[in-house]
Amino acid sequence: MKNRYAVRFYKDGNIRYISHLDLLRLFKRTFKRAGIRLQYSQGFNPHPKMSFAQPLSLGYSSSSEYLEFETQNTYSTDVIAEKLNSLMPEGLGILSCEELPDKEKSLAAMTEAADYEITIPVDDSLEIENTDLLREYISQDQIKVMKRQKKSGRKIEINIKPLIYSISVDRRGNCIMLEAKLAAGSVSNLSPELVLTTFCEFTDISYDRATVAIKRKEIYFIK
């Protein structure tokens, strides 16, 4: 009988500038400080059994991330959430904790989609009808991007349209907000960056990437 758990947490504020690996190290230390002993892998280089459902890009905030882990002892989920929460730095917080069944696949393997919110500050004078914009963007037969292949390094053209499960656009003050549900996980994955670039290119909106905020709002798993 394993002690498998997952915590759901948020990442916001300045701490979004630390990387996926830094966050993993932070959790590892926090478990140590909390006195929660993680299960370690066997072998030459033992490491704690702990992993994220989906890495979150540096600079993104999130209101719903998942970390799964295995402990040596059994705890109540409330105790885990409470202990971790009391030790989290500003910008990180545990929203909930639940037990995971023994035999289930890892969360990473079960991840299939994620919701993103992309906030693009634009010129006040920009006058566009949201619905038209979006309809035209999404009604393209194909949304093509050039993507560099990891192995060969060659650039190939891919159509990202099938990976956009849903998308909506809204104008709020001097920002354009895109909300999109995109393919995520190890089988097929779409980075919101590609939605941002193709959308803005198609609609001819100029923007400064450094001022665009991207937030992950939810991750969906195969049931």
């Binding site: 300045n14 230390r29 600079g59 730095p89």
Partner: peptide
């Protein structure tokens, strides 16, 4: 905040450590 999105290893400049 505006610079951090552009900087390499922005975690160097944020403070707030344990």
């Amino acid at each position: 905040d505006k610079l951090l999105m552009r900087a390499e290893k922005p975690g160097r400049y944020i403070g707030g450590e344990l």
